[in-house]
Simulated assay, not measured.
Amino acid sequence: MIKSATNPGDIVLDPFCGCGTAIVAAERLGRKWIGIDITHITITTIKERLHKEFGLLLKPNKVTGEPFDLDGAVDLANRDKYQFQLWSLHLLGITSCKKGADGGVDGIHYFEDRVGKLKKCVASVKSGKVSVRDVRRGV
């Protein structure tokens, strides 16, 4: 679609980037591009994909709203706790989570231990006042 509708050097706008397929195609075809999305996990996914496929590193000033330090993380947590949760889980490599009542389980990561046995790690993301009985009293 991008190849047939644009020429090298043209600008491709993708206002709902998702996983960045249109942006990657535009980059591959020599088009300039603008990608827009609202979720921090999407932004991080696209940045990682562009770096992996093209060696591109987006500068922090080209991404608006993504935390780069503690102040940014606090700001995101105060603005949108669910996006903070998604962003935090993504930093841990955990993508499975659900919105709403979850009993304190925000994400689950499965992994193999040293002997190849499948194990489960449960993640609970908290910002500000901790609860779910203060993460089950540290147990």
Score class of each variant (00 low, 15 high):
residue 2 I to L: 13
residue 7 N to I: 08
residue 8 P to M: 04
residue 9 G to C: 06
residue 12 V to M: 00
residue 13 L to V: 10
residue 13 L to S: 06
residue 14 D to N: 03
residue 15 P to F: 08
residue 16 F to L: 12
residue 19 C to A: 15
residue 20 G to A: 05
residue 20 G to R: 06
residue 22 A to M: 10
residue 24 V to N: 00
residue 25 A to L: 04
residue 28 R to P: 08
residue 30 G to F: 04
residue 35 G to W: 03
residue 36 I to N: 09
residue 39 T to V: 02
residue 40 H to T: 15
residue 40 H to Q: 13
residue 41 I to T: 07
residue 42 T to S: 15
residue 42 T to Y: 13
residue 43 I to G: 05
residue 43 I to C: 08
residue 45 T to W: 00
residue 46 I to T: 07
residue 48 E to T: 03
residue 49 R to V: 01
residue 49 R to D: 01
residue 50 L to A: 04
residue 51 H to F: 14
residue 59 K to Q: 14
residue 61 N to H: 12
residue 63 V to L: 13
residue 64 T to C: 07
residue 67 P to C: 08
residue 68 F to P: 02
residue 69 D to N: 14
residue 70 L to W: 06
residue 70 L to V: 10
residue 70 L to N: 10
residue 72 G to A: 11
residue 75 D to A: 14
residue 75 D to Y: 10
residue 76 L to N: 01
residue 78 N to S: 12
residue 79 R to Q: 14
residue 81 K to D: 12
residue 83 Q to E: 15
residue 83 Q to W: 06
residue 83 Q to K: 09
residue 83 Q to R: 10
residue 84 F to T: 05
residue 85 Q to E: 11
residue 86 L to D: 01
residue 89 L to G: 00
residue 90 H to M: 06
residue 91 L to R: 15
residue 93 G to N: 01
residue 93 G to Y: 03
residue 94 I to Y: 01
residue 96 S to M: 05
residue 98 K to S: 07
residue 100 G to K: 06
residue 101 A to V: 13
residue 102 D to I: 01
residue 103 G to M: 03
residue 103 G to V: 02
residue 104 G to E: 03
residue 106 D to I: 02
residue 106 D to W: 01
residue 110 Y to T: 11
residue 111 F to R: 08
residue 111 F to Q: 01
residue 112 E to F: 11
residue 112 E to D: 12
residue 114 R to E: 15
residue 115 V to W: 10
residue 116 G to A: 00
residue 116 G to M: 01
residue 117 K to S: 11
residue 118 L to E: 14
residue 118 L to M: 14
residue 120 K to W: 05
residue 120 K to D: 04
residue 120 K to R: 10
residue 121 C to D: 04
residue 121 C to L: 10
residue 124 S to W: 01
residue 127 S to G: 05
residue 129 K to V: 14
residue 133 R to N: 15
residue 133 R to M: 12
residue 133 R to K: 12
residue 134 D to R: 12
residue 134 D to V: 13
residue 135 V to R: 07
residue 135 V to Q: 09
residue 136 R to N: 13
residue 137 R to E: 14
residue 139 V to T: 08
